[in-house]
């Protein structure tokens, strides 16, 4: 479903991604780990279409389409979802209104009828239940004045509602205490399905205690230097990144 080949990208004049290869199949959960500055977040941002990055080489194919040629909204319509490391506050924009606008934009881009207010509320309630969330966040402006944990939960809730084919979680575990982490992880696990793929971008092994990946990749200096199963994450936890040699340090 996602095929990344030799991806190179720059921020300003600085090359961050230097030939990244990754294949993600349907229903798979991939963890991308790496030290600070290895290019993890850049990779997530380039996939989502954020401005400020120049792709200088390689290709990204998603669901048979050239992902890099699409606008951020077109990528979302195709089924891509980025859970932000730092969800953006939108003062004055009501969360429920925002969610409905997003869902209906995606539905109409896919040729599905838009949901009316009643059908939307019903769907929202159902998804809240699956995630064991209460509805207090929905009446407030998007992420505005939310705690760190609330922001991350709101990201996962959006994911539950928009039902992406590929969700990229960018350091979703950062800044969360263990209880908040468990809530977020439970949410992601509840959304796991043979139809949905997940890329977990994380610095720490901790998240992987709660969300078990099928594959683990180590990213260093803009390239994936090692791939393996979940045991690779345990090794990293034990030995740090140093044992992977000069390349990772």
């Amino acid at each position: 479903m996602l095929s990344v080949k030799g991806l190179r990208a720059k921020v300003g004049e600085k090359e961050i991604l230097k030939g990244l290869d990754l294949e993600v199949g349907r229903g798979e959960v991939h963890a991308i780990m790496g030290p600070n500055g290895s290019g993890k977040s850049t990779f997530a941002h380039v996939l989502s279409g954020r401005e400020g990055y120049t792709v200088t080489g390689g290709s990204v194919t998603f669901e048979g389409r050239d992902l890099l040629a699409l606008t951020p909204e077109e990528r979302a319509h195709l089924g891509l979802f980025l859970a932000f490391q730092y969800p953006v506050e939108l003062p004055g924009v009501n969360n429920t209104y925002f969610l409905k606008a997003a869902l209906n934009a995606i539905r109409s881009a896919r040729g599905q009828p838009e949901l009316d207010a009643v059908a939307f509320l019903r769907l929202m309630k159902e998804r809240l239940k699956v995630l064991h969330l209460d509805d207090s966040l929905l009446k407030r402006p998007v992420n505005f004045g939310f705690s760190g944990g609330e922001k991350k939960r709101n990201e996962i809730f959006q994911m539950a509602l928009l039902e992406p084919k590929l969700a990229i979680l960018d350091e979703t575990d950062s800044g969360l205490d263990i209880d908040a982490l468990r809530i977020v992880a439970d949410g992601v696990n509840a959304l796991r399905s043979p139809e949905r793929s997940v890329i977990l971008v994380t610095h720490y092994q901790r998240l992987l205690d709660y969300i078990e990946p099928d594959f683990v990749h180590v990213l260093a200096h803009g390239r994936i230097i090692r791939s393996g199963g979940k045991e690779l994450a345990l090794e990293l936890e034990e030995k740090g990144y140093g044992w992977l040699g000069e390349e990772a340090a």
């Binding site: 954020r50 979802f81 932000f84 953006v88 939108l90 003062p91 209104y97 997003a102 934009a105």
Partner: peptide
């Protein structure tokens, strides 16, 4: 803010309007 909305499937034009309405809100 604009990118956040667009990453959720909302068109750039619609996203701008939403943010303006939020500002006025």
């Amino acid at each position: 803010q604009l990118f956040y909305l667009r990453s959720r499937g909302i068109s750039a034009a619609r996203a701008r309007r939403l943010l303006c309405l939020g500002f006025a809100g």
